[in-house]
Structure formats: structure tokens, C-alpha cells
């Protein structure tokens, strides 16, 4: 059987009988998710003076918040920093989690369960209570106010779940496939490259998505460990629109809208990786 065929068949099962309910469900979900964002967008095009009196749609909508957000505040710079830090975190996290996850899944070695439990240990505390020792560590290695420092910290926290996740996916790959590959003369590396990697792809995609979003949303570390406009990230940028005596709703919401665009595009592309494994048909026959 070919992968393409099987994909078609799995979708046919429910499609024939229950096409309607699915679309109702999806529609309801979309309304629930997007409603607040639509409201946020309406807020962003409402002049501040009308904010408290708008009924459903502003009478004088304005897009002025967007250009002034980009020209009068460093928000765009922060957004670019965020993308850089998030991409760095994804690359580092996925690389480490893939190695660690595969090793933990495929090999039994001393201390294995200690490592497995140990990576969960860090997650047990609210990060605010871990921040001072982390600060000192980063300062010691000279990575305060540095995007690389932020990537390292984000990776450290995103790694636990990513490793476990990828380990779980590798666990699911039958060893027989690998063994068959060895019989065919594959090296360990080739088996990893051509069998584990493609078969674990949904897991890797999920881990990458998680690491990206973790870093994208991360606020406390970014606020504490960075200072200059060239290192600050987007969530910190958003927080600056809430002043002591002033909330710049139009900036907050316009910033929120802008920040969701890379995510939307990124995930529409990345979700293709959520399609099952060996699309190249590597183990056919």
C-alpha cells in the first residue's frame, strides 16, 4: 500500500457519514477563537477617545495605530528579535531533543530514568523563583542582554517537554523497520536519517511548534535578562504599552494583530509536517 492511498482512505471514513457536524464544530470553534481577536482588531481601529463609547463598531475607524506603532515605538525591532530568538530556540531545542529523545528511546543505559525524571524536575517550580540563580549564571558567562543567552534559557525550559515528546514518537516506530534497514546495509546514521527522522516527523513538528511558541510568548526571562532595544522581545514590547497612568489600547491591539501574522503564516506552513511519516515511501516493500 502506498502512503498516499492510505491517507485518502483514513479521511474517507468519517467524511462520508459526518461531513456536516464537522463543519459546524469547526465553525463554532473558529468563532470562539477569533471573536476576541476581532474585538481586539476593532479596538485597534477605534480612536482612543471613542473607546469607552463604542457600541459594536467604531463610527470613525482609523488605521493610524499601525504606522505610529511602527514609527514611534521600537515594536518592530522587538518583533524581529522575537523571531530570531524563537528560531534559535527551535533549532537548538529540536536538535538536542532529537538526539536525547532518540537515545533515550532506543538505548538502555545507566542513569536513563534519572535523566528522564530529572528533566521534569526543573519544571516543578514557578520560573519567578528560579530567576536569580539563572541571572547569576548568565552574568557569569557574559550573556546578559544577549539574544544567545535568551535562546539558551528558553531552550533549557523547552527541552524537557520536547525530549519527552520526541522520545514518545520514536518509541512508536517499530524496531523491525530499523532492523530491516540494517539488513539492507544501512549504517546507524542512515537508519536515523532515513527511518527515524521521517517517521517521527509529526513529533518533531509538534516539538518545534511548542518550542517556537514557548519562546515567542516567554516574558519573564526576556524582561529580566535583556535591556536594550536590540535584544528586547515582543511580549516585553507589548507590556510597555501599559503605563502607570496610561494604557495605549490602540498599540496593544495593533501590536497583537501584527504579532499574530508570523505565527499564522508559520504554522500554516509547518502543519504540513503533521502529516504522517514516510511520504517518500522509504520502507515500501
Amino acid at each position: 500500500m502506498s502512503a498516499a492511498n492510505s491517507r485518502a482512505s483514513v479521511s474517507k471514513v468519517p467524511q462520508l457519514s459526518r461531513i456536516r457536524p464537522i463543519y459546524f464544530l469547526i465553525a463554532a470553534w473558529l468563532v470562539g477563537v477569533l471573536g476576541p481577536y476581532v474585538w481586539m482588531f476593532i479596538t485597534s481601529i477605534t480612536p482612543p477617545s471613542d473607546l469607552s463609547s463604542i457600541i459594536l463598531f467604531p463610527s470613525h475607524p482609523t488605521l493610524a495605530a499601525f504606522p505610529s506603532l511602527l514609527t514611534e515605538t521600537p515594536f518592530f525591532e522587538y518583533l524581529v528579535n522575537s523571531i530570531e530568538v524563537a528560531v534559535g530556540t527551535v533549532v537548538l531545542t529540536v536538535a538536542c531533543a532529537l538526539l536525547a529523545g532518540t537515545a533515550l528511546s532506543r538505548y538502555r543505559f545507566r542513569g536513563r530514568s534519572v535523566v528522564l525524571a530529572g528533566v521534569l524536575f526543573m519544571q516543578l517550580f514557578p520560573s519567578i523563583l528560579l530567576i536569580v540563580p539563572l541571572y547569576v549564571e548568565l552574568k557569569t558567562i557574559g550573556l546578559i542582554d544577549n539574544k544567545i543567552g535568551l535562546v539558551l534559557v528558553d531552550t533549557a525550559f523547552a527541552l524537557a517537554f520536547s525530549t519527552w515528546l520526541i522520545k514518545g514518537f520514536v518509541d512508536q516506530i517499530p524496531r523491525e523497520i530499523e532492523e530491516a534497514a540494517y539488513v539492507d546495509g544501512c549504517s546507524k546514521w542512515q537508519a536515523f536519517r532515513h527511518i527515524i527522522l521521517p517517521l517521527a516527523r509529526p513529533g518533531i513538528t509538534a516539538a518545534a511548534t511548542y518550542a517556537f511558541i514557548y519562546s515567542w510568548n516567554e516574558f519573564l526571562f526576556a524582561m529580566t535578562f535583556t535591556f536594550s532595544n536590540s535584544t528586547r522581545t515582543m511580549p516585553v514590547g507589548l507590556s510597555l504599552f501599559v503605563g502607570e497612568n496610561l494604557i495605549r489600547w490602540e498599540f496593544l491591539t495593533a501590536g497583537g494583530v501584527l504579532a499574530s501574522i508570523p505565527i499564522l503564516i508559520g504554522f500554516m506552513y509547518a502543519q504540513k509536517g503533521l502529516v504522517a511519516g514516510l511520504s517518500s515511501g522509504a520502507v515500501k516493500g
Binding site: 473558529l30 477569533l34 474585538w39 515582543m234 501590536g255 499574530s260 504554522f267
Partner: peptide, 20 residues
Amino acid sequence: LIRGLVLLPWATPSVLIALM
């Protein structure tokens, strides 16, 4: 597109979620 759209809340910083 739908997969991307329904993902949005997860990818929104909590400060914005809260204020929203």
C-alpha cells in the same frame, strides 16, 4: 488555514490575552 487560525490563542502572549 484553519489549523493556523485555531492555534492563535496559544501563540498570544499572556499579557495580551489577559488585557483582551
